[in-house]
Design a protein around this nucleic acid. Structure first.
Lengths: 163, 163
DNA sequence: CCAAAAGTGTTTTAAATACACCCATGC
DNA sequence: GCATGGGTGTATTTAAAACACTTTTGG
C-alpha cells in the first residue's frame, strides 16, 4: 500500500499497517482507536506540511527519540520491530534506497537497521545468490575505486527468505 | 491478550490482533472499520451464544470454509497465515493443546496446521533440545504402548526460534 | 605513491535432512 | 502372538560462520 502523509508532506510512501491501539485508557480525554502505520521513504527530504497542528515537525534518530504523546513510543517500537523482521524475509528494503545503489549502501542499510555488524563476504554471497538485486552495467565514480551499481530485481512487495 | 467471544460462547481464549480492515468499499451499506482478531482454543466444544444474530453458528474445517460475508474470508486467510508463521518462532501452540499431551499430539498439531508431513525423529530432536516442553513423569495409558506426557515449559507467550 | 573504499575464496563448524527398525502394551 | 502406535541413532548433505588480502581509483 502506498499513500501520502499530510502531516509531513511525504508523498507516495510505502505504508504498512502495524497495529490498532484501542485501549480505552490510552487517551484520558476520550476513547480513541488509532490504526498505526509505518511509512518507508528512501530520502527523508524536508518536512513540509500545510497542517497547522504539525508545523515544527522534525526527523529524529530512532535511537534518540524524544518523549512522545500517548502510546506513540510503543508505536515507534512496533515499527522498528516490524522493519527489522521484514528485512529478513522480504524485499521491503527497496523502499529505503534510491533506484540504484552500491552494494555497500545496501549492506550499510541492513547493518544500520539490524544494529549489528555484517560480514561483507558472506552477506554478499547470499544476497547475490538469491537474485534479489540486478547488477547494472554502470558504475558509480568517485574518489576511490568505482563501485558497481545495483537495483532491486522487483520494486514491489515480495517475500524472499533472506537472513 | 485473552478474552471472551460473546458470539460463540468461547471463554478466556488467546486473542491475537490480525489486521484492521477499513476499505470504504468493503461494506456497501456503510463505511465500517473492522479490527480482526484470531482466537485460539484447545477444545472447540459447543458453540453457544446468547446473541440472537449468531444462533446456528458452527465450526468448519479451514480447508472447507463456506462463502463468508464481506471480506471475512480474507480475514480467515490472514488468521491461518499468522498461525502458521507464529508456530515457527513462538510457543503459541500452547493455546491449542490441553495442559498435558503426548509428543504425537504435539507433532500432529504442527503437521496439520503447516499442512505438510513432519519427520518424527528430526522434529523430536529439535523440539526437545530447545526445552520448549517439559516431560512429565506420568504416561498416558491406552490400548498400545504408553506414551510419555508433556506440557509446555511456559504457558505464556514467548518467542523461541523453532522451525 | 598513498589513502580509501571495492571486491573476492577457502576452511571450519553447525544444522538440516534422509532414512528404518525395535519396543511396549492391550486384547 | 499380533496389531498398533511409541520411541530411538547415524550418515549425508547443505548452509552458516569465520576469516584477510588484493584491486582500483583520484588526488
Amino acid at each position: 500500500m502506498y499513500g501520502n502523509l499530510s502531516a509531513t508532506g511525504v508523498q507516495d510512501a510505502y505504508l504498512e499497517q502495524l497495529f490498532t491501539f484501542g485501549d480505552p485508557s490510552r487517551d484520558p480525554k476520550a476513547h480513541v482507536v488509532s490504526v498505526a502505520y509505518m511509512a518507508l521513504i528512501a530520502d527523508p527530504g524536508v518536512v513540509r506540511t500545510s497542517a497547522r497542528k504539525y508545523t515544527g515537525g522534525r526527523w529524529f534518530e530512532v535511537s534518540a527519540l524524544p518523549a512522545l504523546a500517548y502510546d506513540h513510543s510503543v508505536m515507534a517500537r512496533h515499527a522498528l520491530g516490524r522493519l527489522k523482521s521484514k528485512l529478513g524475509y522480504t524485499n521491503i528494503a527497496y523502499n529505503l534506497l534510491p533506484r540504484t545503489f552500491t552494494f555497500a549502501q545496501f549492506e550499510e542499510l541492513y547493518s544500520m537497521i539490524l544494529d549489528r555488524p555484517i560480514d561483507r563476504r558472506n552477506f554478499r554471497r547470499r544476497i547475490l545468490a538469491m537474485e534479489l538485486l540486478k547488477r547494472l552495467p554502470a558504475k558509480r565514480r568517485g574518489p576511490h575505486r568505482p563501485a558497481a551499481l545495483y537495483s532491486f530485481a522487483r520494486r514491489s512487495p515480495q517475500v524472499v527468505e533472506m537472513l
